[in-house]
Amino acid sequence: MNLPAQPNLPPEMSLPVAPPVAPMLAKAIKELPSQDGTLLYEPKWDGFRCIVFRDGDEVYLGSRNERPFNRYFPELIEAVKRELPERCVVDGEIVLRQGQILDFDALQQRIHPAASRVKLLAEQTPASFVAFDLLALGDESLLETPFGERRARLVEALAAAGDRVRLTPVTDSDERAGEWFEMFEGAGLDGIVVKRTHQPYEPDRRTMFKVKHERTADCVVAGYREHKSGPIVGSLLLGLYDSSGVLHHVGVAASFPMARRAELVDELKPYLLNDLGAHPWSSWMSQDESTTQRMPGAISRWSAGKNLSFIPLAPDLVVEVAYDHMEGNRFRHTAQFRRWRTDRTPSSCTYEQLEQPVGYNLDDILAR
């Protein structure tokens, strides 16, 4: 997520770790590592990564790209003052819950340019902060302190936390982590993060590990966007049919080597449509903020200035893609191309094929 540029700079703070700080990152691996006596396992929260700096009444919410979240989440500013220590730096995730599940779509709506809209959404859909690391407390920097000790200090520091600032659960059991991996997805979480107890905090380095869900789906390819470098394929536009026969845009597959992008242009030529009016997504041109079915040509605050026009294809080609999980009726992240499915009919590419995780209660997760 790239936040719009903002003029406000980090405030002058007398903390031992000053903003901005690039968060420590995780490297993706396929399977949960077995416990070797040095590992701790946490749920992977699906929200906006944020490092909170508090120095008395001064609060700075730093995003992953080191720009401030302050204007978008005024309710968290107040929560931090109520529920975190007087002087501290805490790493965590801004999340938004709807009932007992996380709602990333609703969280994205919070990044809005209008102050009046921000104020309204802060009241209607307040966010929470889930803490999982402690970088500084009082006058002490903890960047070089082993994570096992930082975790213990974080538990103590959050003893007075309440409804809006929560502490992520952690376990040293690989068996329990495996259970969490399966169970917690039903509450909108998307995997497990693995940390070593002896690790210092290393900003902007991928020294942790993450294991995310991966599933496959057969989708209709209904168009493509050209690559920013020229007339080759940038991303395939993917669709699934609902029970009434409407083809919904569910995401894109975009990770191809440059040579493969050129090859795809030739492979897709037989499916080209010259008339967008004959395409199931022709109505994207008249989409506005009230449209419930997102279309691939929509302009939004996330895409302002980008050319989102697409080259329409007859919806006759089926592709198998890998994805981690759904967010509403769309893939949460970019899907990965696996293979063409010439044995599948487009009409068989429906939402019904998707595996639905068993529901789980967010309060039960946070109570751990």
Rank of each mutant, 00 (worst) to 15 (best):
L137M: 12
L102K: 04
D364Y: 13
S235C: 08
L142A: 06
D242K: 00
K269W: 08
L268H: 10
C219S: 01
L40K: 12
R166Y: 13
Y224V: 08
R205T: 14
Q100C: 00
E149N: 06
G277M: 10
A298D: 13
D172F: 02
S309M: 08
L272N: 05
D91L: 08
M24H: 13
S348N: 02
H279C: 11
M13G: 07
A26I: 10
P4S: 03
P113V: 05
K212H: 03
P257G: 00
A136L: 08
S303I: 07
M326A: 01
A304G: 12
R110S: 02
Q100P: 11
P33C: 06
D174T: 06
Q293C: 02
E83K: 05
V246P: 05
G37M: 03
V95F: 13
C88E: 11
L121P: 03
E156Y: 01
S255K: 09
R196T: 00
P7L: 01
P280L: 01
L362F: 13
I111F: 12
R215K: 09
S303W: 15
A114F: 15
L134P: 12
V17C: 03
F147M: 13
G305V: 03
S128D: 06
T342H: 15
H279E: 13
T197F: 07
G251H: 05
D288W: 01
P23M: 11
R110L: 01
S141D: 06
P68I: 04
Q287M: 10
E140F: 04
P357Q: 04
Y323K: 10
G328A: 06
K81E: 11
V358A: 15
G297W: 14
R294W: 14
R153P: 11
G162A: 05
A159D: 14
V246S: 10
Q6W: 04
D242P: 15
D218L: 02
R153W: 08
P312D: 05
I77E: 14
